[in-house]
Design a protein around this nucleic acid. Structure first.
Lengths: 143, 143
DNA sequence: CACTTTATTGCAATATGTTGCATTAAGGGA
DNA sequence: TCCCTTAATGCAACATATTGCAATAAAGTG
């Protein structure tokens, strides 16, 4: 799922309605697919496109999209709460530096190894899993 | 580090002072070592032991202990924000169910495998790393 | 198009979390 | 024990997030 249209029909399928506020939100998220978008930006933007969507509606819609696994929520130490579009509703996994808050994606190979370990050790095979590593990045590691 | 005394001396070593509020907080956390304590409980308790410690002080102290890797912060879906005492300031890793919010610890073996994969794939060897898995527990997996 | 159902919104009240600043008191030194 | 430095507190203002409820409007039906 990469396109607006697709996302809309998923919403429809789940008996959800396409309101202007929701459309604007989806638009903005898809325009920023590749970024972790700070929450602040989201409601600044959505609140300004239409002449003011209430804060509560924005929050509610973010929760909805999160529950649908369209968005992943990340709490980056310095930046604060962010949302990341999840391509094809597949897994994302991140390294987040506790110190500076920078985040980076793990290599696919890492995730394969982790999945394997999860299967072996815990018999856990559910797809749609997100993994977040909190540690120190190489910059912030002071010995 | 398992005892009050030890924790106190770590604070001292970091040029931090032992105030009544801080003492009460540490006491409470150590009395609940084995649990993930909901934030709510923490400030209800600490706020009542002494006749009222300000909200802001409690938050600030929690942040301090988190930065020292004495506490790990977890955001459990239903329960909300929790804090977990980190034995010996070593890693904790969790499975958190997106649906029901229940969480459980991973087996040590899993973590060893993950550490190994991190070394192999990313050359990432920093200790004191926490790993959080978000997925669906077996109860909430509906096919 | 008019009508009905009910998901979604806006609003207001409330809960939760953060920050700046003047004041207090912990803890080390004389 | 008194004094000094400055970490930590309380307070107030503010920012961020959640919730209940009445009003609105999306979308299916005749």
């Amino acid at each position: 799922m990469k396109r607006h249209k697709d996302l809309i029909s998923v919403l429809r399928a789940n008996n959800m309605r396409i309101t202007p506020a929701r459309r604007a939100l989806i638009q903005f998220i898809l325009n920023n697919k590749t970024r972790r978008i700070p929450l602040r930006e989201i409601y600044d933007h959505v609140g300004s496109v239409l002449d003011s969507v209430d804060r509560s509606s924005i929050y509610r819609n973010l929760q909805v999209l999160k529950k649908m696994d369209v968005l992943q929520e990340l709490n980056l130490p310095k930046v604060g709460k962010c949302f990341q579009f999840v391509f094809d509703r597949k897994v994302h996994h991140y390294f987040i530096c506790k110190e500076c808050g920078r985040s980076s994606r793990g290599k696919p190979e890492l995730f394969q190894r982790i999945e394997q370990a999860l299967r072996d050790v815990h018999g856990f095979s559910k797809a749609n899993l997100s993994v977040v590593f909190y540690g120190l990045c190489s910059n912030c590691t002071k010995d």
